[in-house]
Simulated scan of single mutants.
Amino acid sequence: MRRVLPTIPQSRLKNQPRLEQVGTGVKFHQEEVFIFHSTLTELQNIIDKSIRRGGLPSDLFTSLQAAREHNLSLVELFYKLILQAEYSQDKSVVISPEDSRLFARHFHFLRAIFPFL
């Protein structure tokens, strides 16, 4: 991770919260949100590559298509949160109830397919 995100302090990388901790009222620093965004962007690349490769059973293809949509929604959410944090004095953002609900709807679907999240 240090090579991928060289401007983020090592201490932040070692203590990075997990995606499952995102919820109403939880405060994240912009760097933490950026790491979530980067992780989900990489997952999007993996999903897209799998779909493009083809030859998948129809049920797996359908699941990956749905995963692509859910993941993209989370990528967009975290991008929005990065921008919100940029304009706050301490470069942090507090998760709103609306963002928490949106996150939960998409994250739980992805977690069922990708339990490592």
Rank of each mutant, 00 (worst) to 15 (best):
M1C: 05
R2P: 02
R3E: 13
V4S: 07
V4G: 00
T7L: 13
I8R: 03
Q10I: 12
Q10S: 13
S11A: 11
P17D: 02
R18S: 15
L19N: 04
E20T: 08
V22D: 01
G23I: 04
K27N: 08
K27L: 09
K27G: 04
F28H: 00
F28R: 02
H29F: 04
H29L: 03
Q30G: 00
Q30Y: 02
E31C: 09
E31R: 10
E32R: 01
V33R: 04
I35K: 01
H37K: 06
N45M: 12
I47F: 06
D48G: 11
K49W: 10
I51Q: 01
I51T: 04
I51L: 12
L56G: 03
S58F: 14
F61V: 07
L64Q: 08
Q65N: 14
Q65F: 14
Q65K: 15
R68S: 08
H70W: 02
E76S: 11
L77R: 05
Y79M: 10
K80A: 13
L81E: 05
I82T: 05
I82Q: 07
L83A: 11
E86I: 05
E86T: 10
Q89T: 15
Q89C: 12
Q89V: 15
D90K: 10
V94L: 03
I95E: 04
S96M: 00
D99S: 09
D99N: 13
L102P: 02
R105P: 06
H106W: 03
F107E: 00
L110N: 00
R111C: 03
A112C: 08
A112N: 13
I113A: 09
P115N: 07
P115F: 06
L117M: 02
